[in-house]
């Protein structure tokens, strides 16, 4: 008797779980998976503008066209390198800012309010601000020309965008702050007793403990940079669909782009997991 009741309770719980999650699953099927499938179909057919969904099946022709498009491969490589460069820079800035904001400082609340303020500024506004030269920090520019070695590694261009990168790091600062809060204070107290300096504390306690958060932040920043409507590849897709009305070509590009992002994120995830897990076990 009791066994049967337990079984039915279990059953009921499963049904309840399905019911709660179904809200999302329905939305996913209708507004994400179905459009995703349709765009795959569009990318493999040659449809007219009037009837893009029922074109003639041409297989991977559009994908071949993408691969032989020299101007696209230029944009593509450019943007991927840029995104891969941006993510660690944003994360490092965010980490520094979060560590400072998490310390014992006067006016912590006001500093925090200031550091998250760029959250409310849209990409479009940053673009307008850039066009007026507001993001042109001569400090960074000067660093770029004097510190030749660094600028050779990460590119002059990245220095010019530094201001924009900083403005985009607010969410990452939040992520790091949340992570820093989860480190038990007793660790620091113990280290202080042993005479560790704050500097040592950072490298020996903070960084190893939040290394999974660093990974999370880098992944978030990478995704953010890849899927931002303002980036070059996005612009290219937009141009080929809206301006040239070449929907199949645009769909083929966007599918390839999606797969490349997926691959890159998976690589970052697996490499990153290795590193962070190792540091975890050393502790």
């Amino acid at each position: 008797m009791s066994k049967r009741r337990g079984y039915s309770l279990e059953r009921r719980k499963v049904t309840e779980g399905y019911l709660f999650v179904s809200v999302w699953v329905i939305g996913f099927l209708a507004f994400t998976l179905y459009p995703l499938y349709m765009s795959l179909k569009i990318s493999m057919t040659s449809g007219k503008i009037s009837d893009i969904l029922n074109g003639e099946f041409v297989g991977l022709d559009h994908y071949k066209r993408v691969l032989t498009d020299a101007s696209f491969s230029q944009v593509f490589v450019d943007q991927i390198l840029k995104s891969l460069m941006d993510a660690p820079i944003i994360s490092i800035f965010a980490l520094i800012a979060a560590v400072l904001l998490n310390g014992d400082i006067v006016g912590k609340r006001y500093f925090r309010a200031v550091f998250f303020a760029p959250v409310i500024i849209s990409g479009l506004m940053i673009r307008i601000l850039n066009s007026q030269g507001a993001a042109d920090f001569s400090i960074f520019q000067e660093l770029g020309s004097s510190a030749l070695l660094i600028s050779d590694i990460i590119g002059e261009d990245t220095f010019a965008r530094m201001g924009t990168l900083l403005w985009r790091s607010s969410v990452e600062i939040l992520i790091f702050l949340a992570g820093l809060q989860s480190i038990p204070r007793s660790l620091y107290e113990a280290a202080e007793m042993d005479g560790a300096t704050p500097w040592e504390c950072f490298w020996k306690i903070t960084l190893p403990t939040i290394s999974p958060i660093v990974l999370l932040s880098i992944i978030y920043a990478t995704i953010d940079s890849f899927t931002e409507p303002d980036n070059q590849i996005m612009g290219y897709i937009r141009e080929s669909t809206i301006t040239r009305l070449d929907f199949s070509y645009g769909a083929a590009i966007s599918w390839m782009y999606f797969l490349v992002i997926l691959l890159i994120i998976l690589i970052i995830f697996y490499v990153g997991r290795r590193v962070t897990v190792n540091e975890g076990s050393q502790r």
Binding site: Y34, I42, I265
Partner: peptide
């Protein structure tokens, strides 16, 4: 896993089909 996958779908990939939908 699907939720995680959704995170990285660029809006461009689905916007045309969403428009026609």
């Amino acid at each position: 896993a699907l939720v995680l996958l959704c995170l990285i779908i660029p809006p461009q990939t689905i916007i045309i089909s969403l428009y026609s939908l």
